[in-house]
Amino acid sequence: MRRHLVVRGFVQGVGFRWTAAHEAQRLGVAGWVRNRADGSVEAVVEGDEPAVDAFVGWARHGPRGASVSSLDVTAQEPEHLASFDVEP
């Protein structure tokens, strides 16, 4: 399964992308994460349903120091990505 996430709140400058990559590796999911110009963080995650659901659950609070005010989650068709990348 594949989910597209947009995380809003105090989520930039707190290590969100790097912690997301660590969490993705721990869960065995693929995808990417990047900062957006509006101050939010955007991510795509693919994998088995329990692992993707766990990543989405983690994104609801993010790393220590983050303050997530909202999380938009959209289902997408999987693209069968092979890795998880941190984009600028």
Score class of each variant (00 low, 15 high):
residue 33 V to Q: 01
residue 78 P to M: 09
residue 19 T to C: 13
residue 27 L to H: 01
residue 5 L to I: 12
residue 24 A to M: 02
residue 29 V to I: 07
residue 18 W to I: 05
residue 20 A to F: 04
residue 24 A to P: 05
residue 68 V to A: 11
residue 46 E to C: 03
residue 66 A to E: 11
residue 72 D to H: 11
residue 48 D to I: 01
residue 25 Q to N: 10
residue 74 T to K: 14
residue 50 P to L: 14
residue 22 H to K: 14
residue 86 V to G: 06
residue 25 Q to E: 15
residue 17 R to Q: 06
residue 7 V to W: 14
residue 55 F to A: 10
residue 34 R to A: 11
residue 64 R to Y: 14
residue 9 G to K: 13
residue 66 A to C: 08
residue 47 G to P: 01
residue 72 D to A: 14
residue 15 G to T: 06
residue 87 E to C: 00
residue 37 A to Y: 03
residue 62 G to W: 13
residue 74 T to I: 12
residue 86 V to R: 04
residue 5 L to V: 10
residue 37 A to L: 10
residue 40 S to I: 02
residue 61 H to R: 15
residue 27 L to E: 02
residue 18 W to K: 11
residue 3 R to A: 15
residue 36 R to L: 12
residue 20 A to M: 06
residue 20 A to S: 15
residue 12 Q to L: 09
residue 55 F to G: 06
residue 60 R to N: 10
residue 70 S to E: 14
residue 63 P to A: 07
residue 35 N to G: 00
residue 42 E to S: 01
residue 17 R to F: 06
residue 54 A to T: 04
residue 28 G to I: 05
residue 44 V to N: 01
residue 74 T to N: 05
residue 84 F to V: 03
residue 56 V to T: 11
residue 3 R to Y: 12
residue 11 V to R: 12
residue 41 V to L: 08
residue 20 A to G: 07
residue 27 L to K: 01
residue 12 Q to M: 08
residue 88 P to W: 00
residue 26 R to G: 00
residue 78 P to G: 07
residue 45 V to R: 02
residue 26 R to A: 08
residue 83 S to C: 02
